Amino acid sequence: MRLRRALQRTALALMFWAGAVTTSGVALADARDEARALATEGIDLLREGKPAEALAQLRAAEKLHHAPTHLLFIARAQRALGRLEEAHEAYVSILLERLPPDAHEAFRAARREAAEEETAIRKEIATITIEPPDSNDEMALVDGRALDRTRLSYPIGVSEGAHTVEVKAGDSVRSVVHVQAKRGETVPVVFPRVPKERTAAVVSPWPWVIAAVGASGLIAGGATGGVALSTRDDAEAAPSQREGADLAASADTLASASTGLFIVGGLLLAGGAAWGIVDVATLGSDDDRGKATLVVGPGTLGVRLTHGWL
């Protein structure tokens, strides 16, 4: 019994959902058909030389259902009424819209025609081009009208005369430029770049640590060499041959150790000093300073120098 009631409730819910979807689809189709009828009437009025009445019908059609073709004829009606800046903006809105791959050919044709007419109407109005601000948090404004970054990819149509272009970050005004626009001309606006904060470079202590270790090696090598010479003298003055041989062997070992300390210490001192000198000489910001690196390998000890701009 419970199962039957549950199935009945599920069936009723599915029927309600299907009815809602069907109703929504019918409403959408009705709106599209009504928009098409209004647009057709508007286009006919425009061809009859009645741009004001045509514009009202076309705007009503666009309000019911969006289509690039509506915007194209809205732009043409505005152009016929002498509202050239508004017409230009309508053309640009068509060009900024991303059509899906399966878009109707009429929409693609509307885009092509809008591109041609947008270029042509620029000769009849004044335009401003704005280089996008550095940061996505910043916004450009023309006479207080905010423009998103995508809108800046096309010129902004304005009336002849003085205009104010700003860059804002929130409520803070970063830059202001005043321009004088003339019909048929484009005024480029480029805001000064905000300099990036430069970080102070720090001299690495490691070259000098290595040089100090090398110097210590030289000192130790000298001391070990002195002990080797003293031991050699003791071997020559030894009272017995066996004792002299033992002391001579110790002297040879100390001499070898002294030579090794001299070689390693000298290399470390030279390499560390060279690294440190280059590091200081190339001191600058992180962007343009050089970089020196100690290179140690079999039979190799040197400094590799690279530049921040390479």
Results as ranks from 00 to 15, higher is better:
M1T: 13
L3F: 09
R4A: 13
A11F: 02
L12V: 13
L14Y: 01
M15A: 15
F16V: 15
W17V: 15
V21A: 12
S24V: 15
G25V: 13
A27H: 14
A27C: 09
L28I: 10
A29C: 12
A29L: 11
R32D: 10
E34P: 00
A35C: 12
R36Y: 01
A39R: 01
E41R: 03
G42W: 07
D44H: 15
L45H: 08
R47W: 14
E48K: 12
G49I: 05
K50C: 09
A52D: 13
A56Y: 08
A61N: 01
K63N: 13
H65Y: 05
A75N: 02
R76L: 02
A77Q: 05
Q78E: 06
R79P: 00
A80Y: 01
A80R: 10
A80H: 03
L81W: 01
G82Q: 03
E85C: 01
E86H: 10
E89A: 13
E89R: 12
V92P: 07
E97F: 09
P100G: 06
F107H: 09
R108C: 01
A110W: 06
E113A: 13
A115W: 06
E117D: 10
E118L: 12
T119Y: 13
K123G: 02
E124H: 09
I125Q: 07
I128S: 00
I130V: 15
D134V: 15
D137I: 08
E138I: 01
V142P: 02
D143T: 13
L147K: 05
L147G: 03
L147V: 15
T150K: 15
R151M: 15
R151G: 04
S153T: 15
Y154A: 11
I156E: 06
I156K: 03
E166C: 08
G170W: 05
S172D: 00
V173A: 08
V173N: 04
S175Y: 03
V176Y: 02
V177H: 06
Q180C: 00
R183A: 10
G184P: 03
E185K: 12
V189E: 03
F191Q: 02
P192S: 06
P192M: 09
K196S: 13
K196W: 03
E197W: 02
T199M: 14
P207S: 02
V209D: 04
V209R: 04
A211H: 04
V213W: 04
V213M: 10
G214T: 04
S216G: 15
G217D: 05
G217M: 05
I219F: 09
A220T: 07
A220I: 07
V227N: 03
A228I: 11
T231M: 09
R232L: 14
D234S: 14
Q241C: 12
R242G: 11
A245V: 10
L247V: 14
S250D: 10
A251E: 04
L254V: 03
A255C: 12
A255E: 08
S256V: 15
T259D: 07
F262Q: 14
F262N: 11
V264H: 02
V278D: 07
L283I: 12
G284Q: 11
S285Q: 07
D286V: 13
K291F: 13
L294M: 04
L294K: 08
V295P: 00
V296R: 05
G299A: 11
T306C: 00
G308W: 05
G308L: 04
